[in-house]
Design a protein around this nucleic acid. Sequence first.
DNA 1: TAGCAATTTGACCGTTCGGTCAATCCGGGC
DNA 2: GCCCGGATTGACCGAACGGTCAAATTGCTA
Lengths: 207, 207
Amino acid sequence: MPKKKAPPKEATADRIRDAADELFCRVGYDAVSVRDIADRAGVNKALVFYHFTSKADLFERVLERYYEAHRRALASAFEAEGSPRERMHRMIDAYLDFMAENARYAVLVQQQISNPETHPLVEKNLAPLYRWIEHAISEVAPHAGPGGPRQLFVTFSGLVINYFTYAPMLARVWDRDPLGAPMLEERRRHVHWIVDLLLDDIERGAP
Amino acid sequence: MPKKKAPPKEATADRIRDAADELFCRVGYDAVSVRDIADRAGVNKALVFYHFTSKADLFERVLERYYEAHRRALASAFEAEGSPRERMHRMIDAYLDFMAENARYAVLVQQQISNPETHPLVEKNLAPLYRWIEHAISEVAPHAGPGGPRQLFVTFSGLVINYFTYAPMLARVWDRDPLGAPMLEERRRHVHWIVDLLLDDIERGAP
DNA sequence: TAGCAATTTGACCGTTCGGTCAATCCGGGC
DNA sequence: GCCCGGATTGACCGAACGGTCAAATTGCTA
């Protein structure tokens, strides 16, 4: 019975990557040391460099998993049947669900986008995803200009992701947990309300 | 003739703070060393610790200047005369102008908000500002719920600030400079278009 | 010109960083 | 029992970090 020769071996690399995931998301890339990651994973620091070539490589692996999950969530929501407007609403729901499940990802992606040092990674992973979203939006808002897909992409994306990046501060300003079910539902209804208002006005021939 | 005894002395601390400003905004707090700051300011590293008690203190000074300018820009725009809707539009214009002039501030503020380590600073500087904005919004959208000031605050704020945090990536995805005058104007019209649509629907008694 | 205080400097400190390496551990096939 | 290759370890490296300090410089007043 030729068993897999590495039942716990893959699990070790996974544990390291999971530990890195949580720490990177919580305090950012620079503020986390490889020692921190190894400690949290319960392994020797040198083992991190056995399974990953460098700290930057480990970071890329963490990001790639998120990017791929992000892309799959949006694509499956948008590519199913229904009117363009229905598919847009479904895509926004999928984006909200994905962010609610991976709240820490919002911080990582904002860090990535705004840091010029990591732009090769952004170009490889995020830019194609965002080109695809902009294309999807152009199905419901075909015209260029202030109401066109270029601006709507930033707006729709910000409506969702900004809520999660603001969440730590909102928890202090409000008296309720912004990531709890009631507030998430309120946000969801808010975003859909806006999307419908914008699409209504665009169908009406504006602006 | 009793001159000021420090014509270039204040300028030294200012040069250090300006150098720190640019570097912190460009690559973030952790990725900048005190040596980098001193080199860019053209002074000895020890001089940084003569004028500021620590690297963290220097960072706070940089942030405070932005927070204060941010607060003044919004307050003067909103507190002048006009209907609530006019004042809301003016406030958004002031926010856009402020961000266009201090594009790097958007990155710093997002970093601050999403990093739990710096929450004492956020509580002291940002939270009061954001409480004030939410109160201002409640003048034009008094009702709670999905169309209420709580959600509108996140939305309006994100409509503006997210454009600037995304700018480095948008410059790669689009073929035009998102911070150039034409695209900034397109964004401005886009945001005002949305604000009017939302306020129209709220006045109509929704949602 | 002497003296004093504020400013500026270079040399230095202990710590932590990312990364390397030889040595050890361990389970499966002969 | 032995060996072998992948997995794991502790010890170690040079570099860079934030921060300190005594000494030197500067500019003003007497």
